[in-house]
């Protein structure tokens, strides 16, 4: 098995982040932590409730669907014999894509109720903890109409992580599909 699947270069500030995390007092009501699965689309980082991500896989061949409105459907992928619809999450969230590093790209499989779909992430960072009290509102200046799709954001030095409200995002995606 290739090891690099689980190995990534340590991002800047990672050690300090962990040190700070380990040094912080044991969790009580006030310093409750929010645990998110973090991934990157284009230049932006997003986080979702870990329970909504059922799998992180290597990128597999994508089969496009002729005649299908290209809207949010990226095509079909096969995940251990099961065919799953690939959705263009970045396009839906209006994130501008930039040149992606194929080695970092991952296929994320999301699960919502009984519905399962895949989306390509340009990078998956795994699970991260954030002090719940540090949740900031999504700035209205973001220029996107997706403020309703986010709980808020956690600011970190050098990067912000938008905590997606999957309870709204997934039904919105599904509704777009049904169109």
């Amino acid at each position: 098995m290739e090891r690099s699947f689980l190995y990534r270069p340590i991002p800047p500030g990672w050690r300090a982040e962990w040190a700070a995390g380990l040094a912080s007092p044991i969790e009580t009501g006030e310093n409750r932590q929010t645990r998110l699965f973090a991934f990157r689309l284009g230049g932006e980082w997003f986080g979702v409730d870990p329970s909504t991500v059922s799998e992180v896989a290597r990128v597999v061949p994508v089969r496009s669907l002729p005649h299908h409105d290209p809207g949010v459907v990226g095509g079909l992928v096969s995940l251990r014999g099961r065919v799953v619809v690939l959705l263009k999450l970045a396009e839906f969230l209006q994130v501008s894509r930039r040149e992606a590093d194929a080695a970092l790209q991952r296929l994320l499989i999301f699960r919502h109720d009984e519905w399962q779909f895949g989306a390509l992430a340009d990078e998956a960072a795994g699970f991260l903890n954030f002090p719940a009290a540090q949740l900031l509102p999504v700035p209205a200046t973001l220029g996107r109409d997706d403020t309703a799709l986010a709980h808020g954001l956690f600011a970190r030095p050098g990067r912000c992580i938008i905590w997606l409200n999957t309870g709204r995002l997934f039904p919105a995606l599904r509704a777009r599909l049904a169109r």
Partner: peptide, 29 residues
Amino acid sequence: LSVQEMPAELGKIRHFSAVSVLADGAPVL
């Protein structure tokens, strides 16, 4: 081929009745 129904959320897609996976793991319509 072991046939699977088209993912329900896509509805009926013209010209295709079902979907399957080839021996190399790639989906095929």
